[in-house]
Design a protein around this nucleic acid. Structure first.
Lengths: 369, 369
DNA sequence: GCGTCTTGTGGTAGCGCTACCATGATGAGA
DNA sequence: TCTCATCATGGTAGCGCTACCACAAGACGC
């Protein structure tokens, strides 16, 4: 009589298709002595739960080490959110950071992340249209996609949500997560000036990306505030690629008198600059200081390791995904909040590629005396 | 009267929480005039369905453009598979390829992929134990994790499944996907010899990874078959890092007479070799040929672009994930198939960093006459 | 001819969760 | 004091699919 549960149905319940005995919301409810609904409310952070009850539920969750079942959640909650992560030929190291952040957050929020590679900007639009037709409601867009107005317009047209990751400037119509490129370049240039440099070369990034212009702006502003004239021959155009960085560096190093420092708009171009310097038998940093931007893996791979600006790429993408989820959900609920702009902090990472200019490296300098 | 469906329940059915009107298995069943169960059987490729019925179902599926709901599938099918992708400090470019392949396949198979970074080998084991306790049943292991017997033993101990991606050699107890490192290094060395080189330096990879030894073996075998003596001073130890590659290259270039070619065991070390050569004012490839291995992004980033061996990393990881799913499912069904070994093809990618040796580059050569 | 096996099919009962009501409690206002 | 809104909570009915059994119809052995 101890075993009332010998009936087939009860027996089945025990060994049923339960997920390896993982606790369910019902277990938590039993432990917290309330209904599953209340537990659900606590989990989803809804209101209308007494503080005391909430605490009990939280305790029960902790005690049972409960984790909600994703499948059940999205099944019961209706459609699963699907958002696409577009990328257009970024540097590999940027990409892996980019992916990691997005993945982590996608897994946390239990959404389906579609990763779409599109080689060219032209290719992007039909691809995005197709994805939107297939039920994708949100797009995560890194530069240069997020800097292209026609891409942004397309997103609006298909009534989807776009989150720009690291655009040059905030768009009025879409959410974005970015760092202050101007301020970062300003800080870096100030740092270089603070070291005693005056002839500082600059390699501009891809002109398609608005951030490139902002970085250039920061560089110029720092020179101006230090009373150093901005000289055109010390500013060369690059395209964020290693190859373009080499070309730029060759040109800069050929300038007479030679610049004592070169600030490249990203790490790939900075790495190329180091390579060019070495071929010219210039020591980095003793003969020439080289600084980068982004702090991708490239920066700490090469020798000497680059002094650079660290962008929190991973955090940025994670934020982008969570923002996409938030906005899509809000839209479904009928709200149309104004697009958020999230500014994340950057940091100047000082490594081995910068130093004060030496006398041997160039002409007379005033500061170092 | 046209609207029989005005009753509350019927009305609800229409606008219920249905996923945007996507067709369900029931719709397909209705269309194919059979039961949902039969449809399910067709979808899952189970037997015991008449060929005629199957065709009908397939037609209905095509007609309705039906796609199974993942959430419902994994909910009904019991536990959702969770497999972990461990990675131990790989190069960023390797990592992004690695992730992409895994992601794609995980999304296809609707499994939950847990991406776990573990800095050191020592760290890996407690981490994996913890993951296994948390219900992870499969591990995707890149080198050097998959080359460490104690890691493999741990997997067996917690009764999980391990798939090695690119191990040095196949383990008898776990599945693996790999390329023929020996053959690849053999081919590359033959290629270099074919160009006319005889003094060919070699930089070994991380000694913790068994593949390093196999690549060295291929190098030696090619020399031997060409009747070129294997000289110890032309073989230096590296650790797969850029830094170690620089050190190795410095040592090799200092050998007298200087080698006319250097074959590095991965692209990072090859890139470092190019950098060292440039600092020594040696032109690549005219003064010295440099070849890499892996074809990571590094290979096509730097200048000159590296001739290297392309490993299909993405395909390898994708295969690993699908194999993990297959094996875990088979295990649940009580089967214990012997571990599969999948050998994927590599290709020799010829770019700009190799050429025939020039007379200026070194001492007398026999072949080129 | 009767069991027993196989084969194709259908019915039913969940998987774990949440949307949607329904219900008791409270307190504010008439 | 009696509404009527609010709050806190519970009950119920699915979400779309598959595991498990049931069952009919034919194949085979004895």
């Amino acid at each position: 009589m101890a075993d009332i549960a010998t009936s087939p149905s009860a027996r089945r319940n025990r060994t049923s298709r339960r997920s390896g005995g993982a606790p369910t919301i019902a277990d938590v409810a039993r432990e917290a002595r309330c209904s599953p609904m209340t537990v659900s409310r606590v989990i989803n952070g809804e209101g209308n739960v007494r503080e005391e009850t909430r605490a009990q539920v939280l305790d029960a969750i902790a005690k049972l080490n409960y984790a909600p079942n994703r499948a059940a959640r999205s099944l019961a909650g209706g459609e699963q959110l699907r958002i696409a992560l577009m990328f257009d030929n970024p540097s590999a190291s940027y990409l892996s950071e980019f992916l990691m952040g997005a993945l982590e957050e996608a897994s946390r929020a239990d959404i389906h992340l579609v990763v779409q590679n599109c080689e060219t900007l032209a290719q992007a639009k039909p691809l995005m249209r197709h994805l939107a037709e297939g039920g994708i409601t949100g797009f995560i867009l890194p530069p240069p996609l997020c800097d292209d107005q026609s891409v942004l317009d397309l997103v609006s047209e298909v009534d989807a949500v776009a989150i720009a990751v690291g655009p040059g400037k905030a768009s009025g119509s879409h959410a974005a997560v970015l760092i202050d490129d101007f301020q970062a370049a300003l800080d870096m240039t100030r740092h270089i000036i603070g070291l005693g440099h005056e002839r500082i070369g600059f390699i501009i990034g891809n002109p398609e990306q608005v951030a490139s212009g902002r970085r250039l702006g920061g560089y110029k502003a720092a020179l101006e505030e230090a009373g150093i004239p901005v000289r055109d021959e010390l500013i060369v155009q690059g395209r964020f690629t290693y190859r373009s960085g080499m070309q730029g560096a060759e040109n800069l190093i050929a300038v007479e008198p030679r610049p004592t420092a070169i600030f490249a708009s990203n790490d790939d171009m900075a790495a190329a600059t180091v390579a060019v310097a070495h071929r010219r038998h210039l020591d980095v940093p003793n003969d020439i200081t080289v600084c980068g931007f982004d702090d991708t893996a490239m920066a700490s791979t090469i020798w000497p390791e680059l002094t650079t600006i660290r962008q929190p790429i991973r955090e940025m993408t994670a934020w982008a995904v969570s923002a996409a989820v938030r906005i899509v959900k809000a839209r479904r609920a009928g709200e149309r909040a104004s697009p958020e702009q999230k500014l994340l902090p950057f940091t100047l990472v000082r490594r081995e590629s910068d130093s004060a200019p030496t006398l041997a490296a160039g002409g007379p300098r005033i500061r170092q005396l």
